[in-house]
């Protein structure tokens, strides 16, 4: 009778590893800093100039006016995609006939290049928040839905027997068995959807937008404020890393049972 200890690996448990993984970024930044120090190129300003542009623009003048709307649209679209994608995924996963009926249409929609849909969304819904959120939701719903379908279909037949033999209701089977069993696939679909929604957040702000990180960055480029443009890249990179980190934390929480070994 052994009860195994559950030791999760934490980032602070391995200080040596942390130090190793810091070497390259720190070296890159230092190299960038010193190599660009005397830069006279208008396209490659010094890191110093970029950082001061960053501070000027993003700390925190444009947070309320641009960062918040950007992230709000992205998270709204992403949230809709997750809810709708998981819901439809369960439905299609449990009713193969329904899936068969809708699959050609779904495949067609999924194949449409996201960027090509930007003008369509503008024609249909104008230039406000709605078309951007709708486009992000429309495109990112597919990875979530398709992964949910796969996950729900792959529920172990023994567990199906268990839930039938203990007479769980349809709804109980969804929430206690099918959803958690499909969680690993759902989460990996959500991960793809998150990075796609981040891309789309910027793309939707490059056309017919009046605010947002992408809009500000494009404006900077068009008005030859190159340091501001680079500062936009810096911000997007940082946000991307933060999103990824937050997602990893969520994933660990959701899938503790799955990744225990």
């Amino acid at each position: 009778m052994s009860v195994m200890a559950t030791t999760g690996r934490r980032w602070y448990a391995k200080p040596a590893g942390v130090i190793v993984s810091m070497v390259v970024p720190v070296a890159a930044v230092l190299l960038w800093w010193f190599a660009s120090l005397d830069s006279t190129s208008p396209f490659f300003p010094s890191l110093q100039a970029i950082l001061s542009a960053f501070q000027e623009t993003w700390l925190f003048t444009r947070v309320g006016s641009d960062v918040v709307p950007s992230l709000g649209r992205m998270l709204a679209g992403y949230g809709i995609a997750v809810v709708v994608g998981v819901g439809l995924g369960i439905l299609f996963g449990r009713f193969p006939l329904l899936h068969r009926a809708f699959n050609p249409a779904l495949q067609f929609c999924r194949a449409l290049p996201a960027t090509a849909l930007v003008p369509v969304s503008i024609v249909l819904m104008g230039i406000g928040t709605a078309p951007k959120v709708a486009l992000i939701a429309f495109v990112t719903v597919f990875p979530v839905m398709l992964n949910t379908i796969d996950g729900v279909r792959a529920v172990d037949e023994v567990l199906e027997d268990v839930s039938r033999s203990f007479r769980l209701t349809r709804l109980q089977r969804v929430f206690h068995v099918q959803l958690p069993a499909a969680a690993p696939q759902i989460v990996s679909g959500m991960r793809i959807a998150l990075s796609v929604s981040f891309v789309l957040m910027v793309v939707t702000e490059l056309v017919a937008a009046t605010d947002g990180i992408g809009y500000v960055t494009l404006q900077a480029q068009q008005s030859f404020q190159v340091p501001q443009m680079w500062a936009g890249m810096l911000l997007l990179g940082i946000l991307g890393v933060l999103f990824n980190g937050a997602f990893v934390l969520l994933e660990r929480r959701l899938l503790r049972w799955y990744s225990h070994d």
């Binding site: 172990d156 023994v158 567990l159 027997d161 268990v162 039938r164 033999s165 203990f166 007479r167 206690h176 068995v177 958690p180 069993a181 969680a183 049972w257 799955y258």
Partner: peptide, 20 residues
């Protein structure tokens, strides 16, 4: 499946819900 019957399956690693 009738309410009078309960089952124990062969493969415990598959019959229990690992997430619960």
């Amino acid at each position: 499946p009738p309410p009078e019957i309960a089952c124990v399956f062969q493969d415990y690693s598959r019959s229990l819900m690992p997430w619960s």
